[in-house]
Write a protein that binds this DNA or RNA. Structure first.
Length: 386
RNA sequence: GCGAUAGUAGCUCAAUCGGCAGAGCGCCGCACUGUGGAUGCGGUGGUUGAGGGUUCAAGUCCCUUCUAUCGCC
């Protein structure tokens, strides 16, 4: 069986990144993928098991999502990457024709796998689904991600807790050697492999990691090991440091972040791509994010007779049609529509916030945007408390 | 009408020989950042149906009464 990529010209770049505009450290660009352009900065909804939980692809398109994540660990265990490949790959399997990214499974092996044993060659772990024993190596992760077929695939890395220096040092060393093996193992030219920097909160380790991963000429670079317990100022310092170390001409992906404020802080420090489970997980736990920061737990009693939409300035499907009182009723009655409507709102908020920022950067109005944002945020949060 | 059984938090129920009236759920909140619709955490909650008696001490024993369910005239 032959596939398209085997006939492609290896010299023709499948992936390229153009920077349209910068303001301060903030950047607006376009990352070209086989499934269309990714306009950055961008927020990517997470669809771990080949579905953004509670949201249909049609709804994702309506709220302007472009990049969607899926997960190697979860799809390998269920239904199995071979089945996904047999069914035509992730895009066809889940009916998403825009860009996709798969995480390597490194993070899940550490956060979900029960009794995992890590060595320099890879990780042996116990499935959270049925307790069976499995082993991931860089080669295995790349092989699985090639079966899944996302546009962007991630290096297999070790994500340690950020403080203990010795643990972080070991993780950095392993992550680097595993990256080399991922590059070596990779065969599909229609997939872009992103390297991941580790180093916790230790600046010298971050520098070492950035130097190593950028020594390999990769189409994009990710900043891993953040939002895992460190403080916000520590995260911001690492981002500023990385901005100076990663090449301007490649996209930067901050893994696992975040909230509206996190996106603003990240973009202000040179980040182009974000993903986070928070908007959809919070939606399933009855909480909505607000454009200007803060959150509302719609399960709370004061919303029982509230005629307002979640956010009066939000143009999402949920805010255009439903009152807080109705949403609270759905939550209280344990109706599954609540997860859908809240997820749509939270995703819309993050996707459109990054879009608005992109437009501001292109118009060289980002600093003005920030000024107005923080001013309004203060007013809004004060009003919402009364 | 007679008899049996029962009555404790919003609900379902615990409470040893008479010895600090509790749990689960609900309710009210909080947390969640490369996803377990999972989960964790905190809080509210009582005239033990009512009235009386015995006792140092009563949800528990005694009397009266009310209510519910079941059975029998």
């Amino acid at each position: 069986m032959t596939t398209d990529h085997q006939f492609s010209n290896p010299n023709k770049p499948r992936f390229s990144f153009e920077l349209h505009s910068t303001e301060g450290r903030a950047r607006a660009g376009t990352f070209h993928t086989p499934h269309g352009p990714l306009q950055t900065p961008v927020f990517a909804p997470v669809g771990t098991a080949a579905t953004v939980k509670a949201v249909t692809p049609a709804q994702l398109r309506e709220l302007d999502a472009s990049l969607v994540l899926a997960n190697t660990y979860h799809l390998y265990l269920r239904p199995g990457d071979e089945i996904v490949a047999e069914m035509g790959g992730l895009h066809e399997f889940m009916c998403w024709d825009r860009p996709m990214l798969t995480d390597s499974g490194g993070f899940q092996v550490f956060s979900l796998g029960d009794t995992n044993k890590i060595d320099n060659d890879g990780v042996t772990f116990k499935s959270h689904v049925d307790g069976s024993i499995h082993r991931f190596t860089p080669e295995r992760s790349v092989r699985i991600q090639e079966n899944l077929g996302a546009d962007i695939i991630m290096a297999f890395d070790e994500c340690p807790e950020p403080y203990d220096r010795k643990t972080v040092e070991t993780a950095v060393t392993r992550t680097h050697s595993w990256l080399e093996r991922c590059v070596e193992a990779k065969t599909r030219p229609d997939q872009a492999l992103f390297g991941i920097a580790q180093g916790g909160v230790h600046h010298d380790l971050r520098k070492e990691s950035a130097a190593f991963i950028t020594s390999l000429d990769l189409p994009g670079y990710a900043i891993g090991g953040l939002a895992v317990g460190e403080t916000k100022p520590e995260m911001h310092e690492v981002l500023e440091l990385m901005d100076g170390l990663l090449p301007q001409g490649k996209p930067r992906y901050l893994m696992g972040v975040g909230t509206p404020l996190d996106l603003i802080e990240g973009i202000s420090r040179g980040v182009d791509i974000f993903d986070c489970v928070l908007p959809t997980r919070m939606a399933r736990n009855h909480t909505v994010m607000l454009w200007y920061g803060g959150r509302l737990n719609l399960k709370n009693a004061p919303f029982a007779r509230d005629r307002q939409p979640i956010d009066e300035t939000c143009a999402c499907y949920t805010c255009s049609n439903f009152t807080r009182a109705y949403l609270r009723h759905l939550i209280n009655a344990r109706e599954m529509l609540s997860a859908t409507l809240l997820s749509i709102h939270n995703l819309h908020t993050l996707v459109h916030l990054t879009k608005a920022i992109r437009e501001a950067i292109i118009a060289q109005q980002f600093s003005k945007f920030l000024e107005q944002y923080f001013e309004t945020a203060e007013e809004r949060q004060a009003r919402e408390k009364t």
